[in-house]
Design a protein around this nucleic acid. Structure first.
Length: 201
DNA sequence: CCCTGATTCGC
DNA sequence: GCGAATCAGG
């Protein structure tokens, strides 16, 4: 395949739309994402800046993935289901988030742990965004329910249930970018210091 | 491991 | 000009 005008045009268009090189390559066919990237460079549009000066390289890119739960602003009442209740903070390899964020394990009841067992942290009453909670309780239905030994570098390490009972497991859903948790759990693990109540910007 | 773009360099 | 290989990073 060669870079015909049409193909280049499509390339420009898609690149302009923020499509990833691999997506473009897939669409074009006959080329790899490397080829696309190379072409993009040669065309001198490596920087996806057309009129956007100080734009983040690629902050929020809408993935064409399944987005069943797309209702971020609903006055959802945070009814912490008994199911959605990480009892212990997972092994954290995360340096304390620089900004003012804090790990917020959802915890709801006074856990009664047999003496001799490490007590799970009891981070007093925390308020987690209803959205995040809802999201979590949903994804936990799909959780892989892994045991400690089954965890890998890319499985969500968010604990669910009571470690003192058998009703305990780790989320295990795929994590993405080097984070310890899956998307949903990252959401509840790191809360912005001030819950931005106005999503309206 | 998945993915992203950036760069290099023989062709 | 092209793009695989490589690099750097989420």
């Amino acid at each position: 395949m060669s870079w015909t005008d049409e193909r280049v045009e499509l390339l420009k268009k898609m690149w302009g739309e923020g499509q990833s090189a691999s997506q473009i390559a897939k669409e074009l066919g006959g080329v790899t994402r490397n080829a696309v990237i190379g072409k993009v460079h040669r065309l001198g549009l490596s920087n996806r800046a057309g009129g956007a000066p100080s734009a983040a390289a690629e902050p929020a890119r809408a993935e064409a993935k399944t987005k069943p739960t797309a209702v971020p602003d609903k006055p959802v009442e945070a009814k912490a289901k008994p199911a959605a209740r990480p009892a212990a903070r997972p092994v954290e390899a995360e340096p304390a988030p620089v900004a003012e964020t804090r790990p917020v394990p959802v915890h709801t009841r006074k856990a009664i742990i047999p003496a001799g067992q490490p007590l799970p942290p009891q981070p007093s009453a925390n308020e987690i965004s209803p959205e995040a909670l809802a999201k979590v309780s949903e994804i936990e239905k799909k959780a892989k329910r892994l045991t400690l030994l089954e965890l890998t570098e890319r499985t969500c390490k968010w604990p669910v249930g009571d470690p003192a009972t058998e009703d305990f497991w780790f989320c295990g859903l795929p994590v993405q970018a080097g984070k310890p948790y899956c998307e949903a759990h990252v959401g509840v693990a790191f809360q912005p210091m001030s819950s931005r109540r106005d999503r309206r910007r």
